[in-house]
Nucleic acid binder design. Sequence first.
RNA 1: CGGGGUGUAGCGCAGCCUGGUAGCGCGCAUCGUUCGGGACGAUGAGGUCCCGGGUUCAAAUCCCGGCACCCCGACCA
Length: 601
Amino acid sequence: MRATALFMPTVKEDPADAEAVSHKLMVRGGFVRQFASGIYIMLPLGWRVMQRVCRIIREEMDGIGALEVSMPTLHPADVWQASGRYDAIGQEMFRLQDRSGRDMVLAMTHEEVFTWLASRELRSYRDLPQIWYQLQLKFRDEPRPKGGVLRVREFLMKDSYSFDLDEAGLDRSYEKHIGAYDRIFERCGLDVYRVESDSGFMGGAQAHEYISPSPAGEDRIALCEACGYAANVELARSVARPPEEAVPVSGQAEPREVATPERRTIEEVSAFLHISPASIMKALVYVAGGRPVMALVRGDHSLHESKLARYLKAEVRPALPEEVVAATGAEVGFVGPVGLPGGNSLRIIADESLRPGGSSGTPGAPGFPSVTPGTHGAAGAAFAGAHEYVAGANKPHTHLVGVVVGRDFQAEFTDLREAQQGDGCPECGRPLTIKQGIEVANIFKLGTKYSKPLGATVLDEAGQERPIVMGSYGIGPARIAAAAVEQQHDERGIIWPKAIAPFDVYLVQIQAKDPVQSAIAGTVYDALSAQGWEVLWDERDERPGSKFADADLVGCPVRVTVGKKAADGLVEVQSRRGGRREEVAVDDCAPTVRGVWEAAR
RNA sequence: CGGGGUGUAGCGCAGCCUGGUAGCGCGCAUCGUUCGGGACGAUGAGGUCCCGGGUUCAAAUCCCGGCACCCCGACCA
């Protein structure tokens, strides 16, 4: 395509409202424009990238036998009422009424419609398995859109749904998707980690996310480079590091009060009492299902709320200051598990690292090995023998020292803390790495969560009616594009992975009005096009610097320059990624381009 | 939902504190000189100063109310 025939509004300056690199570059490169908060226009270049991503997705989905359909995005509310999500989902769903007052929604995902269709059309086990997919818009009224196209309110998604007779069939469909997804990301030139993820406390089945590492991402994942364990921190198990210093054992029979005036935070208390944060129990009061509960983690750990929510099987929120006082008799900062008023009405849930005799992760969880002191050094063993903590006394400006779990209070134990950099891998004990990333895809084993309430059943071989066992699988093409930009760019602009670049070759003609250059550029353009390359021929009457700058900004993998030496029949071929600039005869241009292309990522 | 910030030409911003003819850079248009890494000169077009109300002789500027957008946190199938 000729640049003079293209709409490519590049901009010199970063947009004022952009934070993420991908956001800035996609706006500057003329790929997208914001229309409203979280709502974006895809300009020609941006749409070409999307089309290329979508094409790869289609090919790989078709490759596992999935069938493409197109589902409505405007749904009557009753299907969502049938699944229970009409009420379960809050303001994140766009809701409206039609002219006769019927409740409608804009689809935020498509489990309901697909299941509705399956319930009407799939009758026999002979109809199974099926995998149906679509590339369709989703609408989610995000409370806070951000990061350009990373977190938006209207976006394209490839979503697929598998329908199987039983769990074994679901496992096969799930594995097929893993294969397809791995190939999609490989082809898109994107680094991703497939990690265990939270399937939500209602589903309970297996789920994975594909996370592409980037500082602009909103997810954190725990990775073990030694054994390959990988999980979102919202459910990652880990072996807590033993504290740097062992807690001195007082040997006293019961806790002792100490005055801690105005010392509320872990930092303040640890500094005041000259102890390490790990020697303090952090007590956090939450409200779950309308009732207060106390969550306990070690002072050097952070609670992960979704772990608490999953354990309690209820949504949780931090208690308000008044609620904390009502539940414990003390204000925030002096709350603890010992000496609570009114008997033991407050449920106390403690992290595994506080369990007497252990500083471990989640014993008993699948795949969790027993933790041997030898693995984690002498400090761990010493710590295990101490058991004494400092905790809030539930009295103003007072803490307790010498608190022993199990002796001074009872608690339920579960994995509550967020995995930290350097924690031990739950599988092999080696240190975990925490990385930030963008969720570019997810896969869920739904089971019969939707097929049961929506009545999607088939008759099995024995003539028995059985609910279809389902999976759902999403990929965000725009997030793939943004993640690629996040991963591959330099100070001049984007360096697209070759498979999803808007054009394969950016052909710069230095002098638009030079007939020799025009002729040579035309020859090069035709030759490359004839070989199947998508070429953007920049024959605009601009200064060379502008065209080079745009070429770098737009980020096509190969640049061909037709300039002064065109008169001698020479052109230049160069990789966007850098490296040497090759000067070749016009006739050698195509093979040279191929070479640079092959070498590109 | 809590906290913070910003709305002035297509884009990026100054002006607001201390009220008095609305500015700068980029971009855009025309002409000329230029032409291998975002040129230079000349001329020019382009503004409901987010919206509504108030104070005042006079409001981009002060006051009240609203809206939009951004950032941090909470939330996120």
